[in-house]
Amino acid sequence: MNIFRLAGDMTHLASVLVLLLKIHTIKSCAGVSLKTQELYAIVFATRYLDIFTSFYSIYNTLMKLIFLGSSFSIVWYMRYHKTVRRTYDREQDTFRHWFLVLPCLLLALLIHEKFTFLEVLWTFSLYLEAVAILPQLVLLQRTRNIDNLTGQYVFLLGGYRGFYILNWIYRYLTEPHFVHWITWIAGLVQTLLYADFFYYYFQSWKNNKKLQLPA
């Protein structure tokens, strides 16, 4: 464990807590993409399959349970909670996210480190996580008024993978044979997808204006 990975995990945890806070306290998911939440639930379900077979540390297992629990409960809230589901803008959240799942699965079947069931699904989760934010970014561009909590959620979610990139550089420099091109490229693509959001987020923060993405 290094400071970059810890910062990444804490940023990721913060993003999930901000979203749960928003949904649980103000009982609203306005501006939040259910498609992205469903993709993230699939990402964690396929990434953490080894939770029962391999144990790294209490921290590792605990965080996996938190990410699994929070992502599935957010999907449950947005689909079935009587008050929250009414605030979900179904008409705007129309990204065909299943069109993201299939190519990621095919790519994982083609490019992976080992051709085993767990490894292919784990690689699939890396590819899927890289593009999972797309429905949310599209939704943000459609809904003009982005409330602070949703903006902070996306900002923290984008930031965590950036810390992971620093973690991979650190591990590459300090651990012999730590080379994982698939993880690195997927993580880089994921972070780059946030580039324009980050630009507009900082602009709104600097000029103390409401966050508005260009249509």
């Binding site: 990975r5 995990d9 790294y56 590792n60 992971y164 651990e175 044979h177």
Partner: peptide, 10 residues
């Protein structure tokens, strides 16, 4: 070579 795993990451 034995590549040190990244599976210990979240």
């Amino acid at each position: 070579w034995p590549s040190s795993s990244s599976k210990d990451e979240l």
